[in-house]
Design a protein around this nucleic acid. Sequence first.
DNA 1: AACGGATACAACCGCGGATGC
DNA 2: TGCATCCGCGGTTGTATCCGT
Length: 247
Amino acid sequence: MGLKRGPWTPEEDRILVAHIERHGHSNWRALPKQAGLLRCGKSCRLRWINYLRPDIKRGNFTREEEDAIIQLHHMLGNRWSAIAARLPGRTDNEIKNVWHTHLKKRLEPKPATQQAPNKRKQPKKQQKQPAVEIVMLDGPATTGPVSPEQSLFTSTTTTTSTDYSAASSLENNAADSFSSEEDYQIEDSFWSETLAMAVDDSSDSFGMEGEGGASGAPVPAANDDIDFWLKLFMQASSSDMQNLPQI
DNA sequence: AACGGATACAACCGCGGATGC
DNA sequence: TGCATCCGCGGTTGTATCCGT
């Protein structure tokens, strides 16, 4: 089809950003043709959403964000877009990558033999920056303002950590008191007690006959309502989460 | 210095749902 | 109702880079 694939060039980034600033992205399929890009609409959409959007938060994840991902993944499973919706500035792709490269390993049980030390002591490289600096003419029109709900998990975030060394330092310090995977384990009683709280709440009427989430916990069968899980998590935060180590 | 394994992350692929005709 | 098209999501792959030997 004559379409280009592979890594995006700075020039392509510039063209895409300029076009979206001017015309928006109402039709991804037609966009590359209109913009004069030899890319498919899907590729343009992915590039914009995961890398070029002005409200993307670059830099490595803070400890708070990682903890939020762990909790949300526990509740939502591999629904990366739903998790990303709760972490403003983070994309589903980014969260997915972090999960597979960092967090999943952290939660995996230790083998009987002594775990091999992490060979890599320093981050592999500095975070790449977008090839073009994006200054939207009229604000982040594509995603809108961050709702209070969305900002839930970053309300306590103290660093934005574009400075890798500072973030690494923060992580190392936190890891000193929060390093073992046992710290992240949620006891079995967590779900029974937490779900009991949710059911007791007379204002809700969620069905609870789901067939189990990522950890075997029940999930809403039909509604699958994110708000349910948010509420559940908030309730849990005020009770069982107190048992988790303080950061 | 060269090599190979490990790691991180951008990008692609395929599928399913939503929508319009 | 059936079909075509588009979009978004999650899984997977490709590749650059780092690190130890």
